[in-house]
Design a protein around this nucleic acid. Structure first.
Length: 239
DNA sequence: ACCCAGGAATTGT
DNA sequence: ACAATTCATGGG
């Protein structure tokens, strides 16, 4: 899907076509962002982040795509993660045409299960290839259904996600937050850990678990939004 | 060779 | 159960 700002709104082109309802859903334009930001505006630092980046929204991604994308993100960096996803799609995703050009959608579970670890390693995935092949097999076989997980409460869905090889608490929280509407999830990565230690605990070192508990307690039911604003704020401040 | 990157698995208390 | 250590890989 190609998206840009135009005529005071979003202009989207895609193949296959999608409804405006889908676009609203995907970009979470159906939720009251101002009310959420007011709710999480509980300290000086998140307040500053909100002032700087008001308008930043979470997405509602597809659970399967989100799961595999974040498994491939483990101990990696953003440009490389993008390349991995591009290569997986190019090699194993369904081909699509848009404006006379050929693109590839995200691969299905069956396609990645068929591909296997050896083939996936050609997508720069490294040690993550085995994890992805294993998860794809489970999903293709019907032993694991990311879509039905979305209907479970946060804790239950998280327990199921973490049971997958290659999925730890951080990746599980990202999948829950970005594709399953669990806005209380507070993913703790290197940056969020750094924010908590530096800005909220005077440089004191904390375990990831402590940071996660602090985040969920401190920000409440929309902790995931607070996480996004703090993450974005920290990343663009270190430059 | 060294360091890091939107961590996870394993091992050790 | 939690915390500390090992593992892992392409790029700068």
């Amino acid at each position: 899907m190609m998206v840009r700002l135009a005529r005071g709104g979003l202009e989207c082109r895609s193949s296959p076509k999608v409804s405006t309802g889908f676009v609203r859903h995907y970009f979470r334009l159906d939720e009251d962002l101002d009310a959420i930001l007011k709710d999480i505006d509980r300290d000086l630092h998140v307040h500053e982040a909100i002032q700087s980046y008001r308008g930043l929204r979470l997405l509602r991604q597809d659970p399967w795509e989100c799961l595999i994308s974040f498994v491939s993100s483990a101990a990696s960096n953003v440009p490389k993660i993008s390349r991995c996803i591009e290569k997986m799609s190019a090699a194993h995703g369904p081909s699509l045409a848009l404006d006379g050009m050929e693109f590839h959608g995200f691969p299905t579970p069956e396609a990645l299960a068929r591909a296997g670890e050896r083939s996936l390693r050609k997508c720069e995935l490294g040690f993550r290839a085995g994890y992805i092949a294993g998860i794809a097999r489970q999903v293709a076989k019907g032993d694991f259904d990311p879509y039905s997980l979305a209907t479970l409460p946060y804790e239950e869905a998280k327990k199921a996600l973490v049971s997958l090889k290659g999925v730890g608490e951080k990746v599980a929280d990202c999948v829950l937050l970005f594709s399953m509407d669990k806005l209380e999830a507070f993913p703790v990565d290197r940056w969020v850990k750094r924010v908590a230690e530096r800005l909220f605990f005077r440089g004191r070192k904390l375990s990831e678990k402590k940071v996660r508990l602090w985040g969920t307690e401190h920000y409440g039911r929309y902790a995931g939004y607070a996480q996004q604003y703090l993450f974005h704020y920290m990343r663009h401040r270190e430059e």
